[in-house]
């Protein structure tokens, strides 16, 4: 019977978790200390869609590896609230991300902007690739040179005589 209860609980747990996260998110207001996510009303469904998309491209600054759309930290609630307000004010997605970067730094977005110090990530990647290709080509070239192919080898008369002498000697030793 206990096992059955546990099984039912396990089955329910994802639903339970979803419930607590949903209930715990929101903005802390001065008159009401409980955290409740406000029911947001957008002037168009397009804004609402952009709101949800932006929530998943901005990082929660208090928690590791969570987007603000996935976090119930107070600072995330505040950021969601601000995103909604800026959207209604007619800001573009890029301007909203810029607004957040101005306050919380480059780390706030999951897609760092190209330029400044981030350019080095790209430069270093391409430079390293080019370097590796050069090294591989260099090695291949050295190994494919004519001297490595025994069929091509030309010995001088003197060298042939020495080779013959060495062979004779080794045959004599093994006998």
């Amino acid at each position: 019977m206990r096992w059955l209860l546990l099984f039912v609980l396990v089955l329910q747990s994802p639903w339970l978790m979803a419930q607590t996260i949903g209930e715990g998110t929101g903005l802390l207001t001065p008159d009401d200390q409980t955290l409740v996510e406000p029911l947001r009303q957008f002037s168009s469904s397009d804004l609402e869609e952009r709101f949800h998309r932006l929530n998943w491209t901005l990082r929660c600054m208090q928690c590791d590896n969570q987007a603000i759309g996935d976090s119930n930290a107070p600072v995330s609630a505040q950021m969601r609230d601000r995103v909604a307000r800026l959207l209604e004010d007619g800001y573009s997605d890029r301007e909203i991300v810029d607004f957040m970067i101005e306050r919380y730094g480059e780390g706030v977005t999951y897609r760092p902007r190209l330029g400044g110090h981030t350019i080095w990530i790209w430069v270093a990647g391409f430079a390293l690739t080019a370097f590796l290709v050069a090294v591989i080509l260099g090695i291949r070239k050295r190994h494919s040179g004519p001297s490595d192919d025994p069929g091509d080898t030309k010995l001088t008369a003197e060298e042939q005589a020495r080779l013959r002498a060495l062979r004779e000697r080794s045959r004599g030793e093994s006998a």
Binding site: Q62, A73, P74, V75, Q78, R82, R103, Y104, G105
Partner: peptide, 8 residues
């Protein structure tokens, strides 16, 4: 605090 970039 938000404008200042306060996290907590």
């Amino acid at each position: 605090g938000f404008d200042l970039g306060v996290v907590g």
